[in-house]
Design a protein around this nucleic acid. Structure first.
Lengths: 195, 195
DNA sequence: ATGGGAATAGACCGATCAGTCTATTTGTTC
DNA sequence: GAACAAATAGACTGATCGGTCTATTCCCAT
């Protein structure tokens, strides 16, 4: 058997794909087992329950997405450019043919209780993203960096939501334009303040 | 029996509430029947299948939301003000305690196939919203009205997505600020073009 | 009063759900 | 080769799923 990756990661990967394509509740444990070619007890020994598997899938997807955002923005030192790069990266991400939008948004839609383990994982993701965005907007030295980060985050989330429906990169491109306008505005206000 | 509204609307209403709170796949038909106090055959005589019920719930929610958007913006004749009113209305909408975000976004997350009946209903909604927004942005007589509408739509969707997670009106307030900046920018470009 | 359409309760269907259990095999490491 | 942990197949549980069917009851209009 040529399992390069341990079974645990294999299950995590197959589960992520199926959850993204079919949804969390609509994907039965047996479907994941078939896809991964793995016995039932292997899954339950590793994760304990379907809910815990979902939590780990969401956490992994969150770290992966934030990692992507980081790699997209690494190409520049200028925080203004970084935000543009962020939306360009997002647009490129949507070009992947098998992509069905953001897994974490899907999880938020299916698990609305913020107190549940899955809800907690979603909140962790939200905090990660906002922390990432705030780190960039603070570097712009514009006033109201956190407000700017919140607005950029709204565009980011909106682009993901729209891309799930229209399945194209246009929302991300439009979000990039909107972000550029918001940045220009914040920049202009900063200059006014200096005078 | 004091059924003021016909059973059909009662079922539709209970289903909408349960779908919004628990999700579509997670809500069994029997739960809807219990909540509505209605026999199983009554539901199946009216809707034929759970999927068709979902389609009608989504369509009803779409018409209701667009109707709300219309009523929020009716308070002014000025298209710039109308967009601000739109996000103020949205913020007020999120103040409702039992609200768990946008039912149509949840549907989009659970039914990713755009060819399915539910997917079609979601596309119809998306077209309704964009048509509504474009009608307003065209009245601003700014250049690139459809682009502006798309950007406003992204903020609108982003605010809904964020509100589902944080369960507060802040995202809508922040989206309103962002929309105001986008409008100001579009307005400024229009004036520059006139000179 | 009576006929008919709408709604009722509830049994029933096969399929699938998440999760458990056991007995066996596999691969690795002393 | 012995020991041991990991993974295997597959039977099994009770619950729930969406959906069907029947027989009965209710209410309203003629």
């Amino acid at each position: 058997m040529s399992t390069i990756q341990p079974k645990r990661d294999l299950i995590l990967d197959c589960a992520r794909q199926l959850f993204a394509r079919e949804g969390f509740h609509a994907t039965g444990v047996d479907r994941i087992l078939d896809q991964a070619g793995v016995a039932k007890m292997t899954l339950y020994n590793h994760f304990g329950s379907k809910e815990q598997l979902i939590v780990e899938v969401v956490d992994q997807a969150s770290l992966q997405l934030v990692g992507l955002m980081d790699s997209w923005t690494n190409a520049s030192e200028d925080p203004f450019e970084q935000i543009i790069l962020l939306f360009e990266g997002l647009a490129g991400w949507f070009d992947s043919p098998d992509r069905c939008g953001c897994l974490i948004q899907a999880a938020a839609a299916e698990f609305s209780d913020p107190g549940s383990p899955v809800g907690q994982a979603i909140l962790r993701h939200q905090e990660r993203v906002q922390a990432f965005l705030t780190r960039i907007t603070r570097a712009t030295e514009c006033p109201d960096a956190s407000g700017l980060a919140a607005r950029i985050g709204l565009l980011f989330a909106g682009a993901m939501t729209a891309a799930r429906i229209c399945r194209c990169r246009e929302p991300a491109d439009e979000a990039r334009k909107a972000a550029a306008i918001l940045l220009e505005d914040a920049c202009r206000r900063a200059e006014l303040e200096l005078e």
